[in-house]
Design a protein around this nucleic acid. Structure first.
Length: 642
DNA sequence: GTAGGGTTAG
C-alpha cells in the first residue's frame, strides 16, 4: 500500500479502489487525525476537552483509547483511567503498560499492589512492562522489589539499569548508585544524566562534577554530554554557586561548533542557555540574565519564561508584562509568573485581570491567585476563588490548602478552619507541612487543644516550624509553663531554635513574669545559638522588665538597644506604666507612640484611663480634648474606663 | 498511545 501511495498519489488510489475501501481509508485518516488531536490536547493539559472529543467520536481504535488512558494516567486520575481500561473492547500491550504505569505513579501501597497485580495478569510482557514496574517500585521507595524484578527480567536494556540508578538516588542511596553506574555493562547519555541529576538532588554537586569530567575524559565520545552538563549548571545555579555554573557553561561549546569529537558531545543547546540564565536570575543578577537572553540565537518558551521570572523577582512588572506580550506563544507558565508578580507587588487588581484573561489555567494558576489574595489579606476574595476553583473541577492540593488555612487564620474562622482541616485529611499525607499551618490556625482561633492534637499526631517529622508554631501557640495563650517545657523538649530532639522560637519563648516569660528566665533565654539565644537579637526580642524584654515594675531598666534598655524603638516596644512600656501607675514614663511612651501612629487612639485611651484611675480628672479631660483637637477617633474595642 | 535523564510558574 505504501508503495502504491508513493507511485500514484492519493487521489489516483481513491479512484481505483472500491468505494467501501475508499471510505475505510477516508475514515482511518480521519481517525488518525482525531487521535493526533486528542494527544495534542492531552499534551497541553486540556484533559476535559480531550475527553469531550473522545466521547463525541463515532469510531475509535485502540490508539484512541490508549491516548485517553495516557491522559488520565498523566493527570493522576487512575480511577478514570481504569474505567476506560475496563471498558475498552480490545487491549494491546500498550494499554496494559499504561494502566500499570498509572497505578505505580500514584503514591500509596494500595495502588502499588494493584499495579503489581495487573502486571501479573498481563497476557504478555515486553521490556517496557518490566521497566515500568521497576521504576514504579523505585519511585515508591521499594528498592528491594525493584532490584528483585531487575534480576528476574528475561531481557534487560539500558533503560532498566537507568531506572535502577534513578531509584537508588531517589531514595538517597548515593553510594549504591555510583557503584551500580560503574559496574554497568552499557551506558548511554541518559545513564550519566540520571546519575548527575540524582547526585545534584542529594546535594553532591562536586562529586557530580568529578564524575562528569572523568566520564568526559574517558568515554569514547559517542555520547551527548550536554544533558548532564545542563543538569549540573542548573544545580549549581539553584544553590547560588554562580561561579561553578559559569565555569561549566563555558565548557560547553558554541551552538554552531565544528565537527570534532568533543564539540559534537558538548554542543550547547537552548537548555544550557536557559540553565545559565536561571542561575543568574537566582543570584539576582537580572542584567547578566538579560544579556544572555539577548545573545541567544534560538529561544524557546522556557527562555522567555526564565527571563520574565527574573523581572518578576525584582518587581519590574512593566518589563515582565512587556516580554509576555512580545513572546511568540506565552504558555500557562508565563501567565502564572505575571499573575504572581502582580500579586506579590500588592497589585491585586492587575493580578486578577491577568488571571481572568488567561487562555488556560492550571492548578498552579489557581494556587497563585488564591495565595495572592491571602498575602494581600483579601480573605473573602481568597475564599470566593477557592469555591470557584472547585466548581470548575480543579482539585485543591497541599499548596491550595496551605493558603486557605492561612486565610482561616487571618479571618479567625474556626468553623471554616475545621472544614478545611477535614478536607486536608483526604488530600494530603498525614505528615506534611500543612500541619504547621493548622497548628497556627487553631491556636490563633483560640482552639489550643486542637492545635495540640495536631502537634501530637505528627509522628514522623516535626521541623523547626512545627515546634515554633506550637510554642508560639502556648505563649500567646499565656501558657508559659507549657511553652517553656516544649522548648526544652525541642532541644532534646536536637532541633535548632530560630529567632522566631525565641520571640515565643520570651513572650512566654513575659506572660509568666519570669524576669530571670527571660534574661537568661535572651543571653542564651545570643551566646549558645548565635542568633542576633531583633527588635521583637527587645520588645519582649521590655515587656518582661516592665511587668515586674523594673521600668527604669526597661527604659534604659530602650535607650541602649541597637534599634529605633517601634510601636511594640513603646506599647510594652506603656502597658507596664499603666499597671505600675508610672505617669511620667507613660507620657514618654505615649508621646512616642503618637508620633509613630498619629491616627491611633490607643495611647490616648490608655493615658486617659491612667489619669482617671488616679483620680486626676483634669488631666484625663485634657487628654480627651487633645484627642479631639488632633481629630483622633476612638476605635471600637478600647474602653474609657478599666 | 507505554519505561530512564535537562531549564521556567504556586
Amino acid at each position: 500500500m505504501a508503495t502504491m501511495y508513493g507511485r500514484l498519489g492519493r487521489r489516483n488510489i481513491l479512484q481505483q479502489l472500491p468505494r467501501i475501501l475508499c471510505r475505510h481509508i477516508h475514515n482511518s485518516s480521519r481517525l488518525h487525525q482525531f487521535n493526533k488531536f486528542i494527544s495534542n490536547l492531552i499534551r497541553s493539559g486540556r484533559l476535559s476537552e480531550a475527553r469531550a472529543l473522545f466521547d463525541s467520536m463515532e469510531h475509535r481504535n485502540t490508539v484512541t483509547w490508549n491516548s485517553m488512558i495516557s491522559g488520565y494516567v498523566h493527570g493522576r486520575e487512575i480511577v478514570k483511567a481504569r474505567q476506560l481500561f475496563d471498558e475498552m473492547p480490545q487491549r494491546d500491550i500498550v494499554s496494559w503498560n499504561l494502566i500499570v504505569s498509572g497505578y505505580f505513579s500514584c503514591r500509596g501501597s494500595r495502588f502499588v499492589e494493584e499495579g503489581r497485580k495487573l502486571f501479573e495478569l498481563m497476557p504478555q510482557r515486553d521490556c517496557i512492562s518490566w521497566n515500568t514496574v521497576i521504576s514504579g517500585y523505585a519511585k515508591n521507595g521499594k528498592m528491594e522489589q525493584a532490584l528483585k524484578l531487575f534480576n528476574a527480567m528475561p531481557e534487560r536494556n539500558v533503560v532498566s539499569s537507568n531506572a535502577v540508578i534513578s531509584g537508588f538516588l531517589l531514595n538517597g542511596d548515593v553510594h549504591s548508585a555510583v557503584g551500580f553506574f560503574k559496574k554497568m555493562p552499557e551506558r548511554d547519555s541518559a545513564s550519566l544524566s540520571a546519575l548527575i541529576s540524582g547526585l545534584v538532588r542529594n546535594g553532591e554537586l562536586d562529586m557530580a562534577a568529578g564524575i562528569l569530567h572523568k566520564f568526559r575524559s574517558e568515554d569514547d565520545g559517542k555520547d551527548d554530554l550536554v544533558h548532564a552538563y545542563n543538569t549540573l549548571i542548573a544545580g549549581y545555579g539553584q544553590r547560588g554557586q554562580l561561579e561553578e555554573a559559569r565555569l561549566l557553561f563555558d565548557e560547553t561549546l558554541d551552538d554552531r561548533g565544528g565537527e570534532n569529537k568533543d564539540q559534537r558531545r558538548l554542543r550547547r543547546n537552548v537548555v544550557s542557555w536557559n540553565s545559565m540564565m536561571m542561575s543568574y536570575v537566582k543570584a539576582g543578577d537580572i542584567v547578566s540574565a538579560r544579556e544572555l537572553f539577548d545573545r541567544m540565537a534560538e529561544r524557546d518558551t522556557c527562555s522567555w519564561n526564565t527571563v520574565i521570572s527574573g523581572y518578576v523577582q525584582i518587581s519590574n512588572m512593566d518589563e515582565a508584562s512587556k516580554l509576555c506580550r512580545e513572546m511568540p506563544s506565552p504558555d500557562v507558565l508565563s501567565w502564572n509568573s505575571i499573575v504572581s508578580g502582580f500579586a506579590h507587588n500588592g497589585n491585586l487588581n492587575l493580578a486578577k485581570d491577568f488571571f481572568e484573561k488567561m487562555p488556560h489555567k492550571n492548578l498552579i494558576s489557581w494556587n497563585t491567585m488564591i495565595a495572592g489574595y491571602e498575602k494581600n489579606e483579601d480573605y473573602k476574595g481568597a475564599i470566593r476563588l477557592f469555591s470557584q476553583m472547585q466548581l470548575e473541577g480543579e482539585r485543591p492540593d497541599k499548596h491550595t490548602l496551605s493558603s486557605v488555612i492561612s486565610v482561616c487564620t487571618g479571618l479567625v474562622d474556626l468553623y471554616l478552619g475545621r472544614q478545611i482541616h477535614q478536607l486536608a485529611t483526604k488530600i494530603v499525607l498525614p505528615d506534611s507541612p500543612i500541619n504547621n499551618s493548622l497548628i497556627t490556625m487553631y491556636s490563633r482561633c483560640g482552639a489550643i487543644a486542637d492545635a495540640c492534637t495536631v502537634f501530637n499526631e505528627i509522628k514522623l517529622y516535626k521541623d523547626v516550624i512545627t515546634w515554633n508554631a506550637m510554642i508560639g501557640g502556648y505563649a500567646s495563650h499565656g501558657l508559659a509553663a507549657e511553652a517553656l517545657e516544649l522548648f526544652k523538649l525541642m532541644k532534646t530532639f536536637k532541633i535548632h531554635p530560630t529567632y522566631i522560637t525565641f520571640i515565643s519563648v520570651l513572650n512566654a516569660c513575659a506572660h509568666a513574669g519570669l524576669v530571670e528566665e527571660g534574661r537568661m533565654q535572651f543571653k542564651s539565644m545570643i551566646t549558645d545559638y548565635g542568633i542576633e537579637p531583633r527588635i521583637e526580642h527587645f520588645a519582649s524584654l521590655v515587656d518582661i522588665l516592665g511587668r515586674q515594675g523594673q521600668l527604669k531598666e526597661a527604659m534604659d534598655l530602650i535607650n541602649t538597644m541597637p534599634f529605633r524603638p517601634d510601636k511594640a516596644v513603646w506599647g510594652a512600656l506603656l502597658g507596664a506604666c499603666k499597671v505600675h501607675n508610672n505617669v511620667e514614663l507613660a507620657l514618654v511612651a505615649a508621646d512616642a507612640l503618637i508620633r509613630l501612629e498619629p491616627e491611633s487612639s490607643a495611647p490616648y485611651v490608655l493615658l486617659y484611663n491612667m489619669y482617671a484611675n488616679l483620680g486626676q480628672w483634669d488631666d484625663a479631660e485634657s487628654v480627651r480634648m487633645l484627642m479631639e483637637e488632633k481629630n483622633v477617633k476612638k476605635q471600637a474595642g478600647y474602653s474609657w474606663v478599666d
